[in-house]
Design a protein around this nucleic acid. Structure first.
Lengths: 145, 145
DNA sequence: AAGAATAGTGGGTAAATACCAACGATTGGT
DNA sequence: ACCAATCGTTGGTATTTACCCACTATTCTT
């Protein structure tokens, strides 16, 4: 049998698959709840880990703080998040999800679930779980330092 | 236990992992064999599927034909590939790997193996095989139309 | 109180990505 | 012979990504 060496480099295939599904999600996210992928990720992270400072948010998502500012601008004008100075350290903000933000997030989650169901369709439920487990394992190792 | 919803979206984690390892490979590829990621992929594809026309090459890699032209320019000036008009259809080229191209490809493969060994280190050999199998399965489905 | 460090901000950029339209040369259909 | 389609090519462009530096306001260190 032929070697198919390119298809044997995990990174290459991984990247192709990731980019494709990322694109699919971004497109459908843009039309329905009207969210950017990063906006969605920010809302999700915010929902996962309570009210946090912008910098912590940026670090959690792997985004430059200056880029997080502009992300916040968008979310604030959409009133999807609210900001207040942290009384304990008035340099920091405490960023919180608004009701509208929670609603947008819920819509986004629906889209993500839907698109992933399609892109991961070639896999059985067990395989999907395994895939997630494996990539999370890698991701965890790369984050812990 | 906390929900960690973002880490439960396969696409998000997949993308993070893919981008990170892709970057690592690109950096080391650039210094040692002096190849771009796309140049490497082109050489690999060329090695996998014999001499082919530029358009077929572009299609196989998922690249726009006009971008493939510029890729070829780089590979040609490095004499890593050679082109000749296909005698059966003189619109087409037949692109082939040169000895230098094969050498560069070999170097690239070493780098890729090395980097992947590092990035996939959190996984056992069996898990690495499973991961590759799963993403290839998804990729195949997305390519076949 | 002075100086160092930190959070957020604003302004900018270099590179990568992924396209598109138009064109010459060549071939296939009729 | 004519027209349509195809291959490679040129010359663009819009978007995304991922940075960097300098600055203000505030806090921490000593």
């Amino acid at each position: 049998m032929p070697m198919e060496s390119l298809l044997e480099t995990t990174t290459f295939v991984l990247h192709k698959v990731a980019v494709a599904s990322r694109r699919a999600i971004a497109e459908r996210l843009a039309e329905r709840p009207g969210l950017t992928l990063w906006q969605y990720a920010t809302l999700a992270e915010l929902d996962d880990h309570g009210p946090v400072a912008q910098k912590a948010l940026a670090a959690a998502l792997g985004v430059d703080p200056s880029d997080m500012v502009r992300l916040m601008d968008e979310l604030l004008t959409g009133r999807l998040v609210a900001r207040a100075r942290d009384p304990l350290d008035r340099r920091r903000y405490q960023v919180t999800l608004t009701a509208a933000g929670r609603k947008a997030l819920a819509g986004g989650r629906g889209v993500v679930r839907e698109v992933e169901k399609a892109t991961l369709a070639p896999l059985t439920a067990a395989e999907r779980a395994t895939l997630l487990e494996l990539v999370v394992k890698i991701h965890r190792a790369s984050v812990e330092n």
